[in-house]
Amino acid sequence: MGGIPTIYEFLAYLDFLRGTPAAILVLLTASLILILPDWRWLLLALILQYLVVGLLFADVLPPHLAFMKVLVGAFICLILYITARQVNFGRLPEDVTEEEVGQLEEERLVQIGPYSLPIELLFRVFLALIVILTIWAVSQSTGFLLTEVPEHVNLAILSLTGMGLVTFSLTGEPLKAGMGLLTFMTGFELFYHAIEHSIAMLVVLSIADLIIALSIAYLMQARHSFLAFLD
């Protein structure tokens, strides 16, 4: 009584989210990763995505192994969060003067009513809507149904791989592209672990995810260090 709940109790608490709601949530978080420019929101979307994907992993893997995937996701988010903090979440260093800021290329804005929105944000929203529609259409088509997984997992796999692919194709910025890569990998792993129940593969894919995260963190440091800003 009153101790730490077991994995099974956690799953029971979150039962209302399991199945199609989890798949739709995953589609939403993957879309947010594609759209959002602010690193803090991106990291929040990524951790939420790993938590929800854990519920989907529980549909194809034993719950304790699904929990391991969530833990790996949490570590990845921690690695990226610490690095993001070190480089001021991708913003300019605080001691940069107005003149120095003026030398940088200005963000192009578009006026919609009283709001000025970055044109890139609108483009990403538009693109995300197209991808969502495509994913939805594909998931309803029997020709693209992955017979080895339940229907809602099929939707989640398509969402993660599709959105991940678009995200990392659109940018060379290490954090955003890296999150796209991790999203793509998560979608693929969801499929792969459903068809291949090898513990060794689970472990080595998790190690690969962590090393990819470390690599992304290294590249974030290189891209957003003070010297890079001067360059």
Partner: peptide, 29 residues
């Protein structure tokens, strides 16, 4: 895993553009 570390090797200690490293990692994934 090797490709992920290779991305670090390509970047080295050079600050600035990370395009080549990110693309190398993307292709491996």
């Amino acid at each position: 895993i090797a490709a992920a570390v290779l991305a670090i090797l390509i970047q080295g200690e050079r600050p600035g553009s990370t395009l080549a490293s990110v693309r190398q990692l993307s292709l491996a994934v």
